Amino acid sequence: MQHKVNIMSRSSLNIALLADSRSFGGIESHIANLALGLEQSGHRVLIVLMANYGEHPVFDANPKLRAKTIKLSGGVVELYNTLDKLSVDVVHTHGYKAGIIGRFVCRMQDKAVVSTFHAGERGSLKIRFYRWLDRISAKGHQCISVSQPIARELGISSDVIQNFVEPATTKNVSFGGRQLAFVGRFSAEKGPDTFVKVAASMPEHIFAMYGAGPQFSSLDKCKPLNMCLLGQVPSMLPHWQDIKVLCITSRAEGLPLVALEAMAHGIPVVSYAVGGLPSLIDHGNNGWLVEGHEPSQFIAALTQVMQLSQSRFKLIAQNARKTILDKFSTSAVVPQIETVYRQALGG
Rank of each mutant, 00 (worst) to 15 (best):
K4H: 15
N6A: 13
R10G: 11
S12Y: 08
L18Y: 08
D20G: 13
S21F: 07
I27S: 11
E28I: 07
N33I: 04
S41Y: 10
R44L: 12
R44P: 03
I47P: 07
V48S: 04
A51F: 10
A51I: 03
N52D: 15
G54W: 07
H56S: 09
H56C: 06
P57Q: 08
D60Q: 06
D60C: 12
A61M: 08
N62E: 14
P63M: 05
P63N: 05
K64I: 01
K64T: 06
A67M: 11
T69Q: 06
I70D: 01
I70F: 04
G74S: 08
D84L: 14
V90E: 01
H92G: 00
H92Q: 11
H94F: 09
Y96P: 12
I100C: 02
I101C: 00
G102W: 00
C106Y: 00
C106K: 03
R107A: 10
Q109C: 01
Q109S: 06
K111D: 09
A112F: 03
V113M: 07
V114A: 00
F117Q: 04
E121F: 14
R122W: 14
K126V: 11
K126G: 05
W132G: 09
W132D: 04
G140T: 05
H141T: 10
I144L: 09
S145G: 08
Q148D: 14
A151D: 09
R152K: 15
E153K: 13
E153Q: 14
G155E: 05
S157D: 15
N163K: 09
N172E: 15
V173K: 11
V173R: 14
R178E: 15
L180E: 02
G184N: 10
R185V: 02
S187Y: 09
E189V: 07
D193S: 13
F195M: 10
F195E: 01
A199N: 00
A200T: 05
S201M: 12
M202P: 04
F207R: 01
A208N: 06
M209T: 01
M209P: 04
Y210K: 03
A212Q: 14
G213H: 02
G213I: 01
G213S: 02
G213E: 04
Q215G: 01
F216I: 03
S217M: 13
K223W: 04
L225E: 15
M227H: 02
C228W: 09
W240F: 11
I243S: 05
V245T: 06
V245K: 01
L246A: 10
T249H: 06
T249V: 05
R251A: 13
A252D: 13
E253K: 07
G254I: 02
L255R: 04
P256F: 05
P256Q: 08
A259T: 08
A264G: 15
H265E: 07
V269S: 02
Y272D: 03
G275W: 04
G275E: 09
P278R: 11
P278W: 10
G284L: 13
N285F: 15
G292T: 01
H293E: 13
S296P: 05
A301P: 06
T303P: 02
Q304V: 03
V305P: 05
S309Y: 10
K314R: 14
I316D: 07
N319G: 05
I324Y: 11
L325P: 06
D326Y: 09
S329E: 08
S329V: 01
T330W: 08
A332K: 14
I337C: 00
I337F: 03
T339C: 12
Y341H: 06
R342M: 02
Q343E: 10
Q343F: 02
Q343G: 06
L345A: 00
